[in-house]
Simulated scan of single mutants.
Amino acid sequence: MSSTPLQAIADNSDKLVTTLERPRERIVKSAIELFRQHGIKGVGVDAIAEAAGSNKMTLYRHFGCKDDLVCECLKQVSSEKERIWTDLENTYPGDPAKQLRGWVDEAAQRIFNDLRGCDLVNAAVEIKEAGHPAQKVIMDAKKAHVQHLVELCRMAGVQQYEQLAQALVLLVEGARVCGQSIGIEGPQQRLKQTCDALIDAFSKH
């Protein structure tokens, strides 16, 4: 009998995790990858445990339920995304204007290189249950990212820095949706040029 996609991933779990990682780390890493490929609701704890080279007992020892695991995965994804601010500062030290352009470049590369979209946005679309703990994780992460961008626009000398940051977020999030719904040749191809033109327009005031 042929294996299902989830079974195939579990059978090749060595590609997702390394034996040097602790069980908790392996579980989270495997869950993040499986959620990206199949969606949060499309993956059960059995498949996650198997892909991590572990078992359900160990999984539940580290996470009380699947919702707890989902929240931890989203927190780690958010933490990874937040590294962009440090990376931009290291790449363009003392130059907020170039850091802002660098943010645009990085956002465009993410959209073009990964048509699966943003893990946080995808989770928000999937998880509609009122009061689900993941909703707060997503909201807090997105607000923090926007606030970082607002501060960067301010430091770059833009007078209407909040409006510019919000407009850039709208463009990037819209481009992600276009990439997923229209395909690689969609209007998101103009993202960088549009963002640069918007920054130029705000900078002139």
Rank of each mutant, 00 (worst) to 15 (best):
2 S>Q: 13
3 S>E: 12
3 S>R: 12
4 T>S: 13
4 T>W: 02
4 T>A: 00
6 L>K: 10
8 A>E: 15
8 A>F: 11
9 I>R: 11
11 D>K: 06
16 L>W: 12
16 L>S: 13
18 T>V: 11
19 T>V: 06
21 E>R: 04
22 R>H: 05
26 R>I: 01
28 V>S: 11
28 V>K: 07
29 K>H: 11
34 L>S: 05
34 L>E: 06
35 F>E: 06
41 K>C: 00
43 V>I: 08
43 V>Y: 03
44 G>Y: 03
44 G>I: 00
46 D>M: 01
49 A>Q: 11
50 E>I: 00
50 E>K: 13
50 E>M: 03
52 A>F: 01
53 G>N: 06
58 T>A: 09
58 T>H: 02
59 L>P: 14
59 L>Q: 14
62 H>Q: 04
63 F>N: 14
66 K>Q: 10
69 L>P: 14
69 L>S: 04
70 V>C: 09
72 E>Q: 08
72 E>F: 03
73 C>T: 15
74 L>W: 05
76 Q>C: 03
78 S>R: 13
79 S>Q: 15
80 E>H: 01
81 K>N: 11
81 K>A: 11
82 E>M: 09
83 R>N: 07
83 R>W: 02
85 W>P: 07
85 W>S: 03
86 T>Y: 09
88 L>V: 08
89 E>P: 02
89 E>M: 04
91 T>G: 00
93 P>D: 08
98 K>P: 04
98 K>M: 06
100 L>D: 02
100 L>Y: 05
104 V>S: 07
106 E>V: 05
107 A>I: 03
107 A>D: 05
109 Q>R: 11
111 I>M: 06
112 F>V: 11
116 R>H: 10
116 R>V: 00
118 C>N: 14
119 D>K: 03
119 D>R: 12
123 A>L: 14
123 A>G: 09
128 K>F: 01
128 K>I: 07
128 K>H: 09
130 A>P: 15
131 G>L: 12
135 Q>A: 02
140 D>P: 09
143 K>E: 14
144 A>C: 07
145 H>M: 13
150 V>T: 10
150 V>I: 12
150 V>L: 05
151 E>M: 06
152 L>W: 04
152 L>I: 10
156 A>C: 05
157 G>N: 14
158 V>S: 05
162 E>C: 00
164 L>D: 06
165 A>L: 11
165 A>Y: 12
166 Q>G: 10
167 A>Y: 12
167 A>M: 15
171 L>Y: 13
176 R>E: 15
177 V>I: 15
177 V>Q: 14
177 V>H: 07
179 G>W: 04
180 Q>M: 13
181 S>L: 15
181 S>A: 08
181 S>T: 15
181 S>H: 14
182 I>V: 15
182 I>N: 07
183 G>T: 09
184 I>A: 03
185 E>D: 12
187 P>D: 03
190 R>Y: 13
191 L>N: 12
193 Q>S: 06
194 T>P: 06
196 D>V: 03
199 I>T: 13
204 K>R: 13
